[in-house]
Structures are given as C-alpha cells and as structure tokens.
C-alpha cells in the first residue's frame, strides 16, 4: 500500500510529466488556450496512459525483456528482444488509441464529443510513449504499480495543463511585452511553474526513516487532502466542459 501511495505522489508531483521531463509539451502548448479544451485533452491523456502503460508492461514482461520468452519453453530463454520495444510500444499505443476511440464513440457519445478531436492527437503525444518508456526504464515491478504509474502520471499531466490554461486565460488581461505574447510567455510561465514543482522534490525522502515517521505521514495526509480538493475542482471543471460541449453541439 505504502509503495502505491509513494509512486502515486511521486509521479504526480516530483516526476511530473511536464515540469520535470517536458513530455507532451507540443499539445500542452497548443491546446492550453482555454480551460475547457485543456480539460478534455487532459482527461484523454489520463485515460490512454491508464490503458497503455499496463498493456506495455505486460508486453515488456512477457515478450521483450531478456529471458522473457522462457514461458514458451527452455530453448527461448536466451532471447533478448528489448531492442524491439520502441516499435512494439508505439504500435500498441497507436492501436489502443484507435480502439479506444471506436469504443468510446459507441458507448459514450457525450464523452466522445468532448474527447473526439484529441484522441487521434494523443497517439503522437510524447507523454504517452514516455510513460511506457519510463515504466520500462524504472523497472516497475508489478502490474498494479504499472497501472498506478499510468494513472498518476496522467493526473500530473492533467494538473499541469489545467494550471497553464487557467493562467493563460487570465494573462490575456495583462500587459505582456509584444514579442513575448502567446508562446514566449507560456514558455516562461511553464519554467517558473517547473521551479515551483521542484520544491516537491523533498516530499518523499523517507527511504531511510521508519515508515511510521510522523512528519512524513502528516505531510502525506496533507497532500492527500490537497489532492482530493484539487481533484474535486478538476471534476467540477470537467462536468462544466461537458455541458458546454453539449450546448455547443445543440
């Protein structure tokens, strides 16, 4: 349980997809002009990451790793197919995105309408492939943690795009120097937010301390509370955006 919590907060705050490793920057900058669209893309990213990371974990574990083919018989023990991981991962992602699109279109037209245009974009969102590659590079030990990693890094991405979209909506009323307008100021704000997120680095340094260290527990509890507050906010935004989209469609 504790390792799940640790991974969860670590991937949201410390190894945030945007602020620590800059993954998915293109869509992050392109689709963050309005909160409503940003929420749609963010939700799609969480969803696709939650599906593809565990799937790629299974592929990595049972097909790609050195010795992974041993389940096929003793003569396959020596095979190491890890050089194929890029092509297999990206094929899985592209296929899953296509599949997810079809399924959502069939069963939840409202969700499809709000995610629709973003889903194909997501196949080439670096955050998705990055999620799988980091999962592989960090040797995530089991399927549950891989699922956790997918969801939580998706939430981290969601928070980041939500924050920048809100700031960019407000910044239209400020006097930004003309050459910095738009893209330039978005870069600098992201940089400043990234520096802010660096301060989360000290959040989970409890490796050498006993697990029941009160300071860490309270800190985590506090984060938990903040997190749930934020989540509530996020969900509220989401429902609003769905309503708006529906209205627009009418």
């Amino acid at each position: 349980m504790i390792e799940h919590l640790e991974l969860f907060f670590k991937s949201i705050f410390i190894d945030n997809m945007i602020f620590a490793v800059f993954l998915g920057m293109c869509s992050y900058l392109a689709v963050s002009k309005k909160v409503a669209t940003a929420v749609g893309l963010g939700a799609a990213v969480i969803f696709v990451l939650a599906v593809t990371v565990p799937l790629n974990w299974l592929l990595d574990k049972y097909i790609l790793q050195a010795g992974a083919l041993s389940w096929m018989g003793p003569e396959y023990v020596d095979y190491d197919l890890s050089f194929l991981s890029y092509i297999l991962f990206i094929a899985t992602i592209a296929t899953m995105v296509q599949l997810v699109e079809i399924v959502i279109e069939k069963f939840s037209p409202a969700l499809y309408n709000s995610l629709g245009i973003f889903l194909p974009l997501i196949a080439v969102n670096c955050a998705i492939l990055g999620g799988s590659l980091f999962m592989q590079a960090r040797d995530i030990p089991n399927l549950g943690l891989a699922l956790n990693y997918g969801i939580s890094s998706g939430i981290g991405w969601f928070l980041a795009i939500l924050a920048i979209a809100a700031i960019r909506e407000k910044i239209r009323y400020s006097k930004v120097p003309a050459p910095l307008r738009g893209l330039g100021i978005a870069f600098i704000i992201t940089g400043l937010m990234g520096i802010g997120f660096q301060s989360f680095g000290g959040m989970l340094t409890g490796d050498n301390e006993p697990p029941d260290e009160p300071a860490t527990v309270t800190a985590e509890a506090k984060e938990d509370k903040e997190k749930s507050n934020k989540k509530d906010l996020g969900e509220k935004d989401k429902t609003i955006s769905y309503n708006e989209v529906e209205v627009l469609n009418k």
Partner: peptide
C-alpha cells in the same frame, strides 16, 4: 535544473520576435 531550459527558450523567442516583428502574435 530542467525548468531553466524553458526560460532560455522563452528568451530566445523574445529576442527573435523583437528582431522580426512580423512574428508577433495577436
């Protein structure tokens, strides 16, 4: 630290767009 890269690029954009005003966004 990683965020510095973003700020450096922000500054490059700033310089480039001040030199070539056609590129300034509405």
């Amino acid at each position: 630290i990683p965020p510095a890269a973003l700020i450096v690029i922000g500054i490059i954009i700033w310089i480039q767009r001040s030199r070539n005003r056609v590129l300034i966004e509405e």
